[in-house]
Design a protein around this nucleic acid. Structure first.
Ligand code: ZN
Ligand code: ZN
Ligand code: ZN
Ligand code: ZN
Lengths: 138, 138
DNA sequence: CTGCATTTTGCAACATTGTTGCAAAATGCA
DNA sequence: TGCATTTTGCAACAATGTTGCAAAATGCAG
């Protein structure tokens, strides 16, 4: 695990610091997407709030994580499992939010469909977020 | 217009007040979705920030407007054109965000596709947000 | 291993966004 | 017009996000 963490950071040309190690560890262990606040809490009081913001920002830019928009306006973050690179994300999977337990998960095997838009519109990215009841809660 | 405004409010069992009239007017005139901040600004200094929050909340509950989640975590609001009712929204259309001009629009004619989920997951609502370049900007 | 340029962190201060309680004002109805 | 009820504005607060800067940590070259 520790090895994997250092590996990911180095591949992304990020220096290896305590906060990055810890936060990346959280993502590797997490089985669902996390909100900024979750991350801050789980990381413990060891790290400043600002550091968490900046670390997430760095991870996003390097393509280590991706964001998930939610209807209640609380962005969540999850690991990129595809080979995302600096500025080039390839997270074309569907996201699921359980209305009962609240967890947000990446459905890595469910690909976003192609949406046919009216003449003149050019698609660059499609986000699909499904809300409902998850496997555990049903 | 004024007639239509009063009509919508009465049908939704909302008393007709200055702020509701003004904010509903903004929605009827708008050609794209608005963020809370846009609404606050466009409504002028006549209304308190809190009143705008509460008015949007009321409109949402009554099914007059619906929310649109965006990747940058800024919820936008738009009129429901279908016959949405108290607690029952039927906004099954795709939303589009232009990365150049920034506008967010309801593509009322583009319906969200059915997404086949893994066994155990139950779909209640599907949100599709497409980012790219709009008709005007391309 | 050590020194040093560069990056990252923590802190403080601030801006923005969203929430709550309550008294005053407006609304709708009799 | 009077009056019960709803809505508003204000104040105070909580949560979230941003910026500048000095101190600390990192990584690299010698
Ligand atoms: Zn669940
Ligand atoms: Zn995902
Ligand atoms: Zn555009
Ligand atoms: Zn819409």
């Amino acid at each position: 695990m520790e090895e994997q963490i250092v590996d990911v950071l180095k591949k992304s040309q990020l220096s290896v610091t305590d906060s990055r190690r810890k936060i990346l560890e959280l993502f590797l262990q997490a089985d669902s997407a996390m909100a900024h606040h979750d991350i801050e809490t789980k990381a413990g009081e060891k790290f400043d709030r600002v550091t968490v913001y900046r670390t997430l920002q760095a991870f996003l830019e390097k393509g280590i994580i991706h964001t998930i928009p939610t209807p209640d306006n609380s962005v969540k973050y999850a690991l990129c499992k595809d080979n995302c690179e600096q500025g080039h994300h390839h997270d074309d999977h569907v996201h699921f939010i359980c209305k009962i337990c609240g967890i947000t998960t990446c459905l890595d095997d469910v690909h976003v469909p192609e949406i046919k838009l009216p003449r003149g519109y050019k698609t660059q990215q499609t986000e699909v977020v499904v809300s409902g009841i998850c496997k555990e809660c049903s």
